[in-house]
Simulated scan of single mutants.
Amino acid sequence: MVRPGGHGPGGDPVLLVAHGSRDPRAADATRALARAISAARPGTPVLASWLDHTEPGPTEALRGLAAAGHRRAVLVPLLLTAAYHRRVDIPAAVAAAQQSGPPIRVAVTDVLGPVGDEVDRALLAGLRRRLAEADPGRFDALVLAAAGTRDPAARASVGRVARALGAALGTPTRVSYASAAPPAVDVAVQRLRTAGARRVAVAAYFLAPGLFHDAVAAAARAAGAVAVAAPLTDAPEVVDLVLHRATAHLPTTRIDHAG
């Protein structure tokens, strides 16, 4: 175990912040990812926290790290778009952690989704892994199913992932959303089938299982999809992506909130 207050990517604790869900499977998936990251980087404390529904929240977790003697931490948002939770909720949680107790400097990394126009190869590899696990066959067309957001920039980032995934697979790819924006997954699947696709698969742009993914899977299969991928959860590529975010952003994009 690294002594509190250690410096550098190997010594600073990594705090994962997930969205949170009423479905206990979601928290279990986040804990599994934390264990996988810890196993991949021995000696680095890796903790999980949630913005809603599950404890601890990121503010409580950061206060706990500060009380234990850590002076720095790396916070990785387990989010696939840089929408409201990344722009508002996470900075507010970090600021709240500084209102009392020992100071702790927090490096907040980018989300796991696209940064600008770049779609990380590890993210695409994780999506491809889950698709191959669902059905190793060949697809005529693909739908990338996401949770949904009203943020136009966030939706644009989902579109970039769909285009990059389609290009990597050589397959026409469309986007669908489980909430907040059209089209729904069954509509997207039906449109592709009407256009002549015989084998339509659905890639799940979700980090954890839950009601949204369950609904997507049921609607996609009812519309004729031949395969629906599982969420990314603790895929090795997601572990690599989190570690890349933690190490690459600490020295260059640190957001410090020192008391």
Rank of each mutant, 00 (worst) to 15 (best):
A146W: 03
P183Q: 09
L142K: 09
A180I: 04
A154D: 08
G166T: 04
F212V: 08
R191P: 05
P183E: 09
A162R: 01
R191G: 10
S176Q: 01
D151L: 01
A156Y: 13
V158E: 01
A168Q: 10
R155S: 03
Y205G: 04
S176N: 04
G210D: 06
L207R: 02
V143F: 13
G159V: 04
R129A: 14
A204G: 02
T149Y: 04
R128E: 15
R138D: 15
T149M: 08
V185A: 08
L211N: 00
P172H: 00
A184V: 12
V200W: 02
A132Q: 15
T171V: 14
V161R: 02
L127I: 09
T194Q: 13
G166I: 06
Y177T: 06
L165T: 02
R128I: 13
A204D: 03
A203W: 04
R163W: 00
L142F: 02
L169N: 08
A134E: 11
A141W: 00
A204K: 04
A168E: 12
V175Q: 07
A208L: 03
R160T: 03
D186S: 11
P136W: 14
A125E: 13
V161F: 02
T149K: 02
G166S: 00
D140T: 08
V161A: 05
R129M: 14
L127C: 07
P183K: 10
P136A: 11
R128P: 02
A184K: 12
D120A: 13
G166E: 04
G137K: 07
V158S: 07
A167G: 14
V143K: 05
D186Q: 11
G137M: 12
R155F: 10
P209D: 07
P152D: 06
A195P: 07
R199T: 06
A184M: 13
L144Q: 00
P152E: 08
R163H: 00
V158C: 08
Y177H: 10
A167H: 13
P172I: 02
R138F: 14
F206L: 00
A180K: 06
V175G: 01
